[in-house]
């Protein structure tokens, strides 16, 4: 563990807490893409199967359990508790265009041809693009509640923090994980447009609005 990864994980944790807080306090999941949230459940479940056979640390164990359970809880909030506030008609990104290519990529690029390793690769690839339905929705509506933008900023920062972590691990442990690194760079790059508006508008106290 190093500070970069710790900051990344804390940022990831914060993003989920911000999202749950937003849904609970506004009693609404308006502006949140159900498809993106469902993709995150897929990501966590397919990646953390090693919970059942591989022990890393107590920290690692609890974080994995937290990510799986909190992402399922968010789906519950969106589909059951606050269902009327979820508007599927603006959540129109075709996720089969993400699932298919990620599955193919996972079959080509993996560290070992076993079910769990291929699923692990799949989850890494899928995570890198899972935010697209959400960003697509933001693009369509052209605006977002401030709290939603804080959620997205924390979520984007998480993988960005992992990049210096990978550089650090390369120097100190001589470890390189090419699948995670390339996907992580793609994942972070997808947020660049968002970050630009977030830093120049939201953090200056203005509303998040995309130019018409």
């Amino acid at each position: 563990m190093n500070l970069f990864r710790l900051f990344g994980d804390m940022s990831h944790l914060a993003s989920i807490l911000i999202l749950v807080h937003k849904i609970q306090t506004t009693r609404s999941c308006r502006g949140i893409s159900f498809k993106t949230q469902a993709l995150y459940v897929t990501v966590f479940v397919s990646r953390y199967l090693d919970l059942f056979y591989d022990w890393v640390s107590l920290y690692n164990f609890f974080m994995k359990v937290f990510f799986i359970s909190s992402s399922c809880y968010i789906l519950y909030l969106m589909k059951m508790k606050f269902r009327p506030t979820n508007d599927p008609s603006i959540d129109t990104f075709r996720i089969e265009y993400l699932l298919g290519p990620c599955a193919i990529l996972a079959l080509i690029f993996h560290y070992k041809f076993t079910v769990t390793e291929v699923l692990w690769s799949f989850s890494i690839f899928l995570e890198s693009v899972a935010i697209l339905p959400q960003l697509f929705m933001l693009q369509r509506t052209g605006e977002a509640e401030t709290i939603t933008t804080h959620y997205l900023a924390a979520l984007g920062a998480y993988r960005a923090f992992y990049i210096p972590n990978w550089i650090y691990r390369y120097w100190t442990e001589d470890i390189v994980d090419p699948i995670a690194v390339t996907s992580g760079i793609v994942q972070t790059a997808l947020y660049l447009d968002f970050f630009y508006v977030y830093f120049t508008k939201v953090l200056q106290g203005q509303k998040f609005e995309l130019p018409a």
């Binding site: 090693d50 591989d54 640390s57 690692n60 994995k64 990510f67 972590n165 470890i175 994980d177």
Partner: peptide, 10 residues
Amino acid sequence: EGNPVKHDEL
């Protein structure tokens, strides 16, 4: 059966 790469990150 060990992983070729350590999956110790989240």
